[in-house]
Design a protein around this nucleic acid. Structure first.
Lengths: 219, 219
DNA sequence: GTCTATAAGGCGATAGAC
DNA sequence: GTCTATCGCCTTATAGAC
């Protein structure tokens, strides 16, 4: 489905033979995403994942210590990609920050498996005993903190109303994105997730802006 | 459906509980909620549910045809309760409609298992092969339609801005509630879900209210 | 209404061959 | 790096006793 474009030697890669091994590893990760999306963590099966990759369960366990290790690896891998692609530099205005989130939503709509995986795992992880519980607690803390920064800066610059509760807006923004993703997942072909999000940002920004100007033109 | 041909009117027995024979059935439903919450559908186990109820798997299967029947029964039972409690009469204003939703959020925060079950199942059901897929597609359609009605009425009465996209607002409101529930589920003791929702409604209602001064025009 | 027994199969993890 | 074989346990569903 989606090929990871940048095979970078994260661990010290002596001799080229690692490239081959890493590609198999990457294929396992991609396949695991689809399975965690459809089955969640508990009901996913290493044997089924391995079979789809074209190896056996024993072969898969050469690359990952066990099921939990696979899950954590998948989550880490996925989110590192996103961090690089969307959150590597600071937006220069609140409107630009929202535009980045619209790009993210569009990207998510283009990778159904990964998006559905996050829907399912984020929900499952509410159980304190879930192997990804701590991961998601930390993730939401980070994401909301990150989204709060450009809002605060915009308030400082007088771009947004001075009494804006930036963390509340950030929380709400993350919630809306998750909620729309949940609805989108039920009918991905017909549901305009990005359009819904744009409508929301449009009104949000208008209500936070003192002079009543809305979002900039869409890219 | 199982047990339909009973002469006993299980439905609308307003005096707080079930006939003695159906009490076991109700206990199974309650227990199943907790298990579907923690494990989702696929990874839940009839034997574990039965054991917690205090019977065997075989005993449980006397009340429900199989696992899917149990799931459908749980969903139907849960949502009928909510429909009666929260959505049996039409709100008189947009503000009152939002108040009902705040009550619902407070109620959800007070029944962790059921709320987490809906988080997990709604996410899992994105898979078209999931036994609750059609159920959730229908449910979101109904909920959004239902939420749209009082908004349209409020626009007609001049209570809200005439250019309000009522279905968009309804969609967004449902999304926010789901998104906040997802975050709440990760830390139910410390997360003020109702407060967050109230903050959102406050700003939403303010931005939708026509007070005659400088409401910017929008396509 | 609940039990036991059983069928037929899937699970994760480990061990060792090559 | 991948295979096969295996362990012990779990799964849903059915059949029949009481």
């Amino acid at each position: 489905m989606d090929r990871t474009p940048g095979p970078k030697p994260r661990r010290s890669a002596p001799r080229g033979s690692y490239a081959v091994g890493d590609e198999r590893r990457a294929r396992i990760l991609d396949t695991a995403v689809e399975h965690f999306a459809q089955w969640g963590f508990h009901a996913s099966s290493l044997a089924r994942i391995a079979k789809e990759v074209g190896i056996t369960q024993g072969g898969l366990l050469h690359h990952f210590r066990g099921k939990e290790d696979l899950l954590v690896s998948v989550l880490r891998h996925s989110e590192e990609q996103d961090r690089e692609r969307f959150f590597s530099r600071e937006p220069r205005s609140a409107a630009e920050a929202f535009t980045v989130l619209l790009d993210l939503a569009a990207h998510n709509a283009a990778r159904r498996g990964r998006t559905m995986m996050f829907n399912t795992l984020a929900a499952e992880a509410g159980d304190p005993g879930h192997p990804a519980h701590d991961h998601f607690v930390r993730r939401y803390r980070e994401v909301i903190d990150y989204a709060t920064v450009p809002l605060r800066a915009a308030v400082e610059r007088g771009e947004l109303a001075p009494d804006t509760d930036c963390e509340a807006v950030a929380t709400e923004t993350v919630a809306i994105m998750d909620g729309l993703q949940l609805q989108w997942a039920l009918a991905p072909e017909t549901y305009d997730m990005v359009g819904r999000l744009r409508t929301y940002f449009d009104r949000l920004l208008r209500s936070l802006t003192t002079d009543g100007s809305g979002m900039p033109e869409r890219p």
